[in-house]
């Protein structure tokens, strides 16, 4: 299990301007919403529904940035771009697994807060 923190809440903390309740609320919101988006990407790849993949990746992008998950910065953009252009589709399964595995660790780390 990766011990290094895969997220950085600094940006969220700055926006919260000292309001810890808001930080907690956003973390919970991230934990509730993101798995559904990951599932949409997974299903989209399986069904080769690239519009669905593009839409879910596009929607996920700001929250990944806000949660400071830097290791997924390029991954989520590649998924969105490949789906949009319907190119390099052979890379999609691997990109998806990177996304999914990283997020699983992030979920655990955030739940342990």
């Amino acid at each position: 299990m990766t011990k290094a923190k895969l997220y950085d809440l600094q940006q969220l903390i700055e926006i919260a301007a000292g309001n810890q309740d808001f930080v907690d609320k956003m973390v919970n919101m991230f934990l509730e919403m993101t798995p559904a988006l990951v599932s949409r990407i997974e299903a989209g790849i399986q069904l080769q529904d690239w519009d669905e993949v593009k839409s879910a990746a596009h929607k996920m992008k700001p929250s990944l940035d806000m949660m400071g998950i830097d290791s997924l910065h390029d991954v989520i953009r590649s998924i969105e771009e490949n789906a949009k252009l319907v190119e390099r589709l052979e890379d999609m399964p691997e990109l998806y697994f990177t996304l999914s595995d990283t997020l699983d660790v992030v979920y655990q780390q955030l739940k342990a807060l």
Binding site: I15, A16, A17, F22, K25, M26, M29, F30, M33, K59, P62, S63, M66
Partner: peptide
């Protein structure tokens, strides 16, 4: 904003 997470951030920030 269809992204509820981002919408929440915007709301919080603007209503400061």
């Amino acid at each position: 904003e269809d992204d509820e997470f981002y919408g929440e951030i915007l709301e919080y920030h603007l209503t400061l």
